[in-house]
Computed example of a mutant assay.
Amino acid sequence: MLRLKTDPSPHHGHHFHFEDLRAPNALLLALEGRAPWEYAALLASMPWLRKLPRGDGHPVLVFPGLGANDFTTAPLRRFLDGLGYVTHPWGQGFNFGPRQGVLERCTHDVRRLFNAHERKVSLIGWSLGGLYARELAKELPDHVRCVITLGTPFTGHPRATNAWRFFELVSGQSVHDPHVLAQLRREPPVPTTSIWSRSDGIVAWRCSVVAPGPQAENIELHASHVGMGMNPLALYAIADRLAQPAGHWKPFEPHGARRWFFRTPQAEAKHAA
């Protein structure tokens, strides 16, 4: 059974103090209105995206964000299905936080897909859904192939988002448990990709930065928070990550024209050194 363990040890590797983070300002929040344009860009770029390498048919479980349901992840899942993956919605209606039975159902679903396909499951989580994906990977590392998160706030404090009051309202839980926050900051023991945007109007972007490591990476792109799961750049990055052969994960490298659209802080640090 998946539970948030109480590990009070701090997460190292970031150059900022968690308590100094603030929620995105009013301008960034207003820019969330560009999400419909991101969906339009997805439709326009679909002929190009469909030419990406075919998937190997392994199962992919997709978790929606706070207050969202499987309808919001449908464009992403349709895209991945078209590439040859076998995607699955989370199937629990609106995501109102880890209420009674939610995490247990998620654990059951990962085990079920692993057994049905006899292959490890890739987990994709948008915003709050990314926290589920990360925690499931910690609980079931032998069942999970990789984790990909979109604008997920796993570092900092939940008050560094513009959604923490809504989370407390709909989940009935407090965001101020330091032991839970410490647990969320721990990296999963599987290949992990965090996709985030500095122009995110809901989550302070630093809350989505992983400490780069042998199996952890950051991919920065231009996107809104509520449109990230249908942003063509995000979908391109997701497809690139999923296409890697099992057991042969490598960090994302924005070669050629990709340098105009993606930034990978871990690669920049390597070149600077």
Rank of each mutant, 00 (worst) to 15 (best):
L2K: 03
P8W: 00
L21C: 05
L21Y: 01
A23N: 10
L27H: 03
L28I: 04
A35H: 11
A35D: 06
W37V: 01
Y39I: 07
A41S: 01
A41M: 00
A41G: 03
S45K: 10
L49E: 13
R50I: 06
L52N: 09
P53Q: 08
R54E: 10
G55D: 06
G65C: 09
A68F: 11
D70E: 13
T73H: 05
V86M: 09
P89W: 14
N95K: 08
N95C: 09
P98R: 02
G101K: 12
T107A: 08
V110H: 00
R111N: 13
L123V: 05
G125D: 08
G125S: 12
W126Y: 11
Y132A: 05
A137M: 06
K138C: 07
E139C: 12
V144S: 02
I148N: 07
I148F: 03
G156M: 02
H157P: 00
H157K: 11
W164F: 12
V170M: 03
V170L: 04
Q173L: 15
Q173P: 02
H176I: 07
P178D: 14
H179D: 15
R186Q: 12
I195E: 07
S199C: 05
A204S: 12
V210K: 02
A223K: 04
S224N: 07
L233N: 02
A234K: 06
A237R: 09
I238L: 10
A239Y: 15
A243K: 04
A243I: 01
K250S: 10
A257T: 12
W260C: 14
R263S: 01
T264Y: 00
Q266E: 15
K270R: 12
H271G: 03
A272F: 09
A272N: 04
A273H: 15
